[in-house]
Amino acid sequence: MNRLALAAAIAVASLGGLRSAVADDKADCSFLEFTATKGKEPAIDPDLKPLEKKLAHSAPFASWNTFRVQTKLDKTLQKSKAEALALKTGTANVILRERSAARVNLGITLDGADGKRVLDAKPDFQTGDWFFVGTSTPNAKDDGHFLALMCK
C-alpha cells in the first residue's frame, strides 16, 4: 500500500473514532468457557462463530474439531474489583487492574474442578483481542478445556 493511501486510511479510521470516549475505570468483557474435542464431524457452537477461523486453523485448536460452549458470560469489570466467574468446570476470578483506550491489564486466576489452582496470570492485551487459557480435561487428557475472554 503506498503512503498516500495509508495516510488516507488512517485518517478515515481516526475520524470514525473521533467522538468515542473510553472510561478508564471499567471494561466490558465477554467470557466463553468451552470444550475442545475430536469428534467424527467438525462442529462449532454458534456462540463461538466469531472465533471460528482461529479454532479451525490455529494452534492449539487445530488439534480438535468439535467446540462446545459450557458457559457464556458478559460482565462489566470495575477497576480493582474482583469478579467471580461461575464456570461449569472449576472457577475463575478476574480483576481489571488497569486500562487505556487500547489495552486492558487484568488479573486472572483459574481453579480446576478439584479446587487446585491451575493458573494465576496478569496479562496485558489489546481491547478486542481474545485471550485464551486452556488445559487438558482431568478425565480425558486428549481433550481441551478453555476459558476465552475479550474486553472492550
Partner: peptide
C-alpha cells in the same frame, strides 16, 4: 499480549499468539 506475571502451579505453560483477518488472540496452554 504481554504477561506481567504468570504462574501455573502443578503444570508448565506455553504461550501462543495467533492472528488472522478476524483479529489477534493469545493462548496460554
Amino acid at each position: 499480549a504481554e504477561l506481567e506475571a504468570l504462574d501455573t502451579p502443578g503444570g508448565t505453560w506455553t504461550m501462543m499468539n495467533v492472528s488472522d483477518e478476524d483479529g489477534a488472540a493469545t493462548v496460554i496452554w
